[in-house]
């Protein structure tokens, strides 16, 4: 009865509804796009009316919001933060820099395509995207969650070797190698 396919479907719908309407966001704000996050969260654009609110630590967060470029130094921290988060978890790439490098496309110490290192569920393009665009990106993510298509974390687990190889190319011997962060 419990493992029945139809009852599992109902459970999925309820769980996806809850996940969709309650997104705890961990903003990894080292890029310049971080300046667009305060107006998104506060009185003017008020993302909290969609159930989006900030989380203080990776353990409590659902969404990792990467605002802008990542240097090879910070990408190590981002990977560590991402692997500390609990399933189900989503990544939003914010701004042109996470898509193709943006204005840093020929820089010697930034990564260009974020999707090669972490599974990105939604991109928000623009340099920089305005709060309206950010909220629209969140709503796209909500739609994706409701349809059950936001499975970046699953993809990351299945293709871990490919992601690790890519990470090793930029990080060298300092690549994180611990599978589970229980320290």
């Amino acid at each position: 009865m419990i493992n029945d396919k139809n009852s599992q479907k109902i459970v999925d719908i309820i769980q996806n509804f809850a996940r969709k309407h309650s997104l705890f966001v961990l903003a990894y704000g080292t890029g310049c796009g971080a300046i667009e996050i305060p107006p998104t969260m506060t009185s003017r654009y008020d993302a909290e009316r969609f159930g989006i609110r900030g989380a203080a630590t990776p353990r409590q967060a659902d969404v990792l919001l990467i605002t802008g470029y990542l240097t090879t130094k910070t990408v190590k921290r981002v990977i560590r933060v991402y692997e500390q988060m609990q399933d189900p978890k989503y990544v939003i790439g914010f701004g042109s820099c996470t898509i193709n490098g943006g204005m840093y496309w020929d820089s010697y110490n930034t990564i260009k395509v974020l999707d090669r290192y972490l599974p990105v569920d939604i991109y928000i393009n623009g340099c920089m995207p305005r709060p309206e665009a950010v909220i629209e990106g969140f709503i796209k993510l909500q739609k994706k969650i409701m349809e059950g298509r936001a499975e970046g974390a699953k993809h990351y687990k299945e293709n871990l070797e490919w992601y690790r190889a890519n990470q090793k190319k930029v990080l060298g011997p300092t690549t994180p190698h611990i599978q589970e962060y229980n320290w």
Binding site: Q15, F17, H21, Q86, P88
Partner: peptide, 20 residues
């Protein structure tokens, strides 16, 4: 602000419980 609906905390609790 407009703010979340008053039942937002029930949804938050449901989501947190259904997290791995």
């Amino acid at each position: 602000r407009v703010g979340p609906p008053v039942w937002q905390n029930y949804i938050d609790a449901l989501k947190l419980v259904s997290k791995k």
